[in-house]
Amino acid sequence: MANGSRQAAWEFFGAELKRRREDAGITQVELGSRVFVSGGYIGQFEQAIRKPQLDVAQRIDEALQTDGIFERLWRKLIKEQPYTEYFAHAAELERLATEICDWAPTVIPGLLQTPEYARAVFLASNPFAADEYIEELLRGRMDRTEILKDTTRPVYWAVLHEAALRIPVGNPAVMARQLDHIAVLMQERKVMVQVMPFAAGAHPEMGKMMWLMEFEDAPPTVYTEGVLSGSLLDDPAVVKRARASYDLLRAAALSPEASLALIESAAEDYRRCASTT
């Protein structure tokens, strides 16, 4: 399903939600209280600005006595979107974020990836997949990177462990172009990137990727990912603790200027390696 068609389908979801809610004679605030979200969230669901998580869709069905229609619609739409189910909601929220903070312990974050690097990552995870499947994953990944090109792009801050620069993904030429890409984004002041050097030793969230998002009119969230699973959390205490961990990571990392120098040096190392092979 193309992006435009998918958005139209979510707009149908929202319009149907509004119709069913109004037929039941309840306000957005009243429905929100029954399904444990704010009335503002219900309004955003109805306008297809936000997409509800599965448990919210299920509670809407229960509150409006709609015989599972919103759960079925949700499952149909999630199945036909280009991301894994556990990541889909985070990807939708990413488009609305005013600030995104990434911590990447081993792999360059998706928003910073070049097509060649992303393809190599997907092939490593799916060595027996058909080309069409890899290309579908790649299109979804590259669609996400478009938000950094918008004039209304979010403030984007990434802390990369030096391991993400040194672990070769693809071949040396792919890595050189990947690191050059990050350097250009930094030089154009579209992103802020710091590198956590090996010399920093132990640090918070070792081995765990973390992704914080803030919004203009909604609570901040934190997304973490494990093996074939992901968690999107908005509990204020959890987000506060994650923010504190991220602040410690930034404090232990190299300055943006020193980070840029290290990224450019690593890119040159890969270029020299590529020229000798």
Rank of each mutant, 00 (worst) to 15 (best):
Val238Thr: 14
Pro154Phe: 03
Pro154Thr: 03
Ala173Lys: 10
Val227Tyr: 15
Phe128Asp: 15
Arg250Ser: 04
Phe215Leu: 05
Gly201Arg: 07
Thr145Tyr: 02
Glu216Cys: 02
Phe215Met: 08
Arg243Asp: 11
Ala199Asp: 13
Tyr246Trp: 06
Glu146Trp: 04
Lys190Ile: 07
His181Tyr: 12
Gly201Leu: 06
Ser231Gly: 12
Pro154Ile: 03
Asn126Tyr: 12
Val193Pro: 04
Ala244Arg: 10
Leu248Thr: 09
Ala200Ile: 01
Glu135Phe: 01
Leu138Ile: 02
Tyr223Glu: 08
Glu146Ala: 07
Met196Ser: 03
Glu188Asn: 06
Asp143Asn: 06
Phe198Arg: 13
Met196Ile: 00
Leu165Val: 03
Gln178Phe: 05
Ser125Pro: 07
Thr224Ser: 09
Ala200His: 07
Gly230Val: 00
Leu260Asn: 09
Asp143Gly: 01
Lys240Tyr: 05
Arg166Thr: 00
Val239Asp: 01
His203Val: 01
Gly207Ile: 06
Trp211Glu: 11
Leu148Thr: 06
Ala183Cys: 10
Val155Glu: 14
Pro256Trp: 00
Glu132Leu: 05
Glu216Leu: 01
His161Val: 00
Asn171Gly: 11
Pro204Gly: 06
Leu148His: 07
Ala124Leu: 10
Gly230Tyr: 05
Trp157Pro: 09
Asp235Arg: 02
Tyr133Gln: 14
Phe198Asn: 13
Ala183Phe: 05
Leu260Cys: 12
Met192His: 15
Ala129Asn: 12
Ile182Lys: 02
Ala258Gln: 15
Ile147Trp: 08
Thr221Gly: 05
Met142Ser: 05
Leu137Gln: 14
Lys240Ile: 00
Glu135Cys: 03
Met186Val: 05
Ala158Tyr: 00
Ala164Tyr: 00
Leu179Phe: 02
Arg243Pro: 10
Ala200Phe: 06
Pro236Thr: 01
Val239Cys: 02
Val184Thr: 12
Asn126Gln: 13
Lys149Val: 03
Asp131Glu: 14
Leu232Tyr: 11
Glu216Gly: 07
Pro219Lys: 09
Val184Ser: 10
Tyr156His: 04
Glu214Tyr: 12
Met186Gly: 07
Glu257Gln: 14
Ile182Met: 06
Glu135Asn: 09
Leu233Glu: 15
Met206Glu: 12
Arg250Tyr: 01
Met210Ile: 08
His181Glu: 09
Asp234Asn: 13
Gly230Asn: 09
Leu179Asp: 10
Ala158Ile: 00
Ile167Tyr: 11
Leu228Gly: 13
Asp235Met: 02
Lys240Asp: 12
Phe198Thr: 08
Ala237Cys: 09
Ser231Pro: 09
Arg243Tyr: 08
Glu257Ala: 10
Val227Trp: 13
Pro219Ala: 12
Glu132Cys: 04
Asn171His: 14
Ala124Asn: 14
Asp235Ile: 00
Arg139Tyr: 02
Val191Tyr: 08
Val227Cys: 11
Pro172Trp: 01
Leu148Arg: 08
Ser229Trp: 13
Val195Ser: 06
Ala200Asn: 08
Ala218Tyr: 12
Val159Met: 00
Trp211Arg: 11
Arg241Pro: 12
Leu160Pro: 02
Leu233Ser: 15
Lys240Phe: 02
Val195His: 04
Arg177Ala: 13
Thr145Trp: 05
